[in-house]
Design a binder for these strands. Sequence first.
RNA 1: CGGGAUGUAGCGCAGCUUGGUAGCGCACCUCGUUCGGGACGAGGGGGUCGUGGGUUCAAAUCCCGCCAUCCCGACCA
Length: 583
Amino acid sequence: MVTRMSELFLRTLREDPADAEVPSHRLLVRAGYIRRTGPGIYTWLPLGKRILDTIGQVVREEMQRIGGQEVLFPALLPREFYEASGRWTDYGDSVFRLQDRKGADYMLGPTHEELFTLLVKGEFSSYRDYPLTLFQIQTKYRDEARPRAGLLRCREFVMKDSYSFDLDDAGLQKSYDDHRVAYQRIFERLGLDYRIAFAVSGAMGGSASEEFLAPATNGEDTFVQCTNCDYTANTEAVEIAAPPKQDPSSHPESVVLDTPDTPTIETLVDRLNGMHLDRTFTGADTLKNVVLKTRQPGGKDWELLVVGVPGDREVDLKRIAGQLEPVEVEQADADDLAGHPKLVRGYIGPQLLAEIGIRYVVDPLVVPGSAWVTGANVQDKHAAHVVRGRDFEPAGELGAVEIRDGDRCARCGSALEIARGIEIGHIFQLGRKYADAFELDAQGADGEPIRITMGSYGIGVSRAVAAIAEQSADDSGLVWPASIAPYDVHLVPVGKAKPGETSEQLAAAEQLARDFEAAGKRVLLDDRGATAGEKFADADLLGMPVIVIVGKALAEGQVEVKDRKSGERRNVALDRVVSELAS
RNA sequence: CGGGAUGUAGCGCAGCUUGGUAGCGCACCUCGUUCGGGACGAGGGGGUCGUGGGUUCAAAUCCCGCCAUCCCGACCA
């Protein structure tokens, strides 16, 4: 297949578009792969469409390899499908809603768990029908509060979503594992550097879940990876190593200290160090008790929850929310505290909480037997030597502290580092959430119904285009891995023609193009009447893996082969270049 | 939703302070020269100056309202 650039619907831009910040966005627009149509909405031009289709094809092949069967749902969905699962309401403002001429409610699908569940329920009813995996590659719509970075966060985007249906937990585990392997194959074929990170399941519900992240400085996801072992986790799901437990009886009896005007950790530490005690204190010696409030999903009333963390650590509300999902959690405000006069703001300690019926949990860093300076539940007073397991007993542990660079890996104890990445895939063991909502059962051999258990698996196909561009582009343009490039070879003839004639170089390039085509290569031929410099600059910008220059060396029967990624060039005999590159 | 910025030709921008019928670069068209790293000369086509109102003899420019977009944050499979 040969495409002539003189006929291609393409216009490259010499300048960066004003609204593009990140490299993938800038270059995809400049190179004429995409054009912005609205905020978070993009049009795919011929070169971009080829990339998108190629990635879709890689995904399709690997999904079929694990037995997935492709279907295609509409994006326009009647409200009723999302009522039973509660997501018509849960999705809130992030779903596009519209009405038909009769006033009936519709939405543009942000994800399709409900539809798949109902489809299967309508067709299959015997245990013999399972297991089953269905998938689609389809356009999704989410009304993001702030679309950004071109294709990285769009309001309309292409996603592969698949769903597994199994009779039991072991079956679900196998479907999940199959997907995990398929995703590894897919991202390897796409030439992406990626990590698999433990994740929390978020609004999808369900239990086990992992994210596939493409490390990139412009990525929106923060994750944590161990500098020694392969432990990788989303910051919401990460677990860090705690110090060793201590013997509660090894600490002195707790004492109450006068600490006026010390409502913050900083003022408290200053005060302690001004008291001429037998040691110096830091924030890490204090126990900070943060008052949050939680609410059951769909519930009305907030309930207080106090979380204890070392005083030198911040509380990460997102991380807490991820673990408590679907229970809502927020920081408590003054009004919430008003109903609890025994909670003295700035001087809250855990010694009293169980007594007055407020749920208290600690971060795992607050290990059993550890001693702390903490509030005495009296204005202007703190207590020292307050020991977990002696002076208070938390109702449980909750990973609450904001993760820091250098925190210790829970597996091997080495330092963790924080990195940024682009979420390119996510796999979930949903369990029976949707099967319960829609009563998806199979009739078993004994005639009894079996509740189906499900998994849900997504790959951001359009986002992967941007992720690959982020990881591989350089200063002069895009650099596509050979496996997904729009063309295998970019042929660039440069040379002067006599008036009214075709240049020798163009004639030779035309012949080369036919030879490459016969060898099964996809060729982009720059037959434009542009200058050499312009053709070279565009070839670098467009990013095909191999650029073949038919120019000066043609007189010696040679062409120049340039590797776009390494920039390396070498001369190859004209009559050998096709066989060499085709092998 | 909070903070900041911007809307002038397909793209990137100037003009606005001090009102007088719109300009530059890229791209595009014609002719000629050029031809290995975004060539040069000459000529040309293309703009409701985001939008509504106001002030004025006269508004891209001054005043008021609205809309939209981008960036940071909040939020977000």
